[in-house]
Amino acid sequence: MAEPLQIQVNGESRDCPSGATVGDLLRDLDLKTERVAVELNLEILDRQEFDRRGLKAGDRVEILSFIGGGGPDDGWIRRVPTHAQ
């Protein structure tokens, strides 16, 4: 059994099994693929890519979806830090 990989998902460290794909990660998180956008190391993936893209140690994954919003800043929303790291 290979060592688990450590990756960053939405800014938090997470272990995933070696050989896991983006699709595996989404299933593990119980997320519906048709409702999320995934950015892997700043590259936005097509949905068809989810099961093809393998994860490697140190990968940075951002998973986003639609939330309530109207104006530019609704006060309570969590900002995605884009240039923070």
Partner: peptide, 19 residues
Amino acid sequence: VTVAVRRVNITDRSKENLL
């Protein structure tokens, strides 16, 4: 209807989805 795009809450998966 307008919506915003934000990080999914991965620690609390029980959260409902707007859609």
